[in-house]
């Protein structure tokens, strides 16, 4: 699925958080929104997820306007910074949640759900931890469960909000590769929000550098390093 972000604006209490943001996310690519805190990247991700409404502009998914589609109807998988796992549910129940609450004909049977959960547990390489509870898992394991839960609904878009920020450096590095591999294997278009440029460059195909509610430049690592479009991009990339 491709996503077109068309002149999105958003203000909170009179302060402009996003000013005329336009961006094209290509089908199957992994795109990172990179920027310092307060640059509007998380707000943009929440807008795409449908958790916030824009003041102006449009969101087009494969050409269809989804700007005012409710979050639950978008079928976008989201991994939160806190992972937001359901603490009273086992790993298997967490992963199955999105399938269990489906309505009508779409809802898979219990056996189908169990098969799907097993597939996803294999995918994140945690088949033996199905019956554990989130509190019994390490940070890295929790993050992978959050990934599996988001992927269970066969999302049309995968949204990742600072998914590595709660992990220590070593786990972070090993998980970057696994997130990238998962995205490739599933073939889902993905958007990652991060303030860490090494993370952005390592995982993403392209990186959008954000500052003050604007996208300063979109490009690959080489493009951003060799032809920075603004002083901010040059300094931000150099500082990291």
């Amino acid at each position: 699925m491709s996503l077109e972000i068309d002149r999105i604006t958003k203000t909170f209490d009179g302060a402009a958080v996003l000013r005329d943001v336009s961006l094209n996310v290509r089908d199957g690519e992994f795109l990172a929104l990179l920027g310092p805190s307060g640059s509007g990247k998380t707000t943009l991700l929440n807008l795409i997820a449908g958790l916030t409404q824009p003041d102006g502009g449009k969101l087009l998914l494969d050409g269809t306007d989804i700007t005012h589609k409710p979050a639950g109807a978008r079928r976008f998988g989201m991994v939160f910074q806190s992972y937001a796992l359901f603490r009273h549910m086992s790993v298997a129940d967490n992963i199955a949640f999105g399938l269990r609450i489906m309505r009508g004909r779409d809802r898979p049977s219990k056996a189908e759900r169990r098969t799907r959960v097993c597939e996803l547990l294999d995918l994140i390489e945690m088949p033996e931890l199905a019956d554990r509870y989130p509190a019994q898992l390490s940070g890295g394991q929790q993050q992978r469960v959050a990934m599996a839960r988001a992927l269970a609904i066969s999302p049309r878009l995968l949204l990742l909000d600072e998914p590595f920020s709660a992990l220590d450096a070593q786990v972070r590095r090993s998980l970057r590769g696994s997130v990238r591999d998962l995205q490739r294997k599933v073939g889902v278009t993905a958007l990652l929000v991060t303030h860490d440029q090494s993370e952005a460059f390592e995982i993403a195909d392209r990186v959008a550098v954000m500052n003050g509610g604007l996208i300063e430049q979109v490009g690959t690592r080489e493009e951003l390093q060799q032809n920075p479009a603004s002083d901010f991009v040059r300094q931000f990339i150099a500082a990291g």
Binding site: A49, G72, R74, L85, F86, R87, F97, I153
Partner: peptide
């Protein structure tokens, strides 16, 4: 966050309350 996660997974208000908020 748990409620927002449930929302993105397609849960309606009642499902979020019954399955996510209430057990907590």
């Amino acid at each position: 966050d748990e409620e927002r996660a449930a929302l993105t997974l397609g849960a309606n208000g009642w499902q979020i309350f019954r399955l996510v908020t209430f057990p907590n």
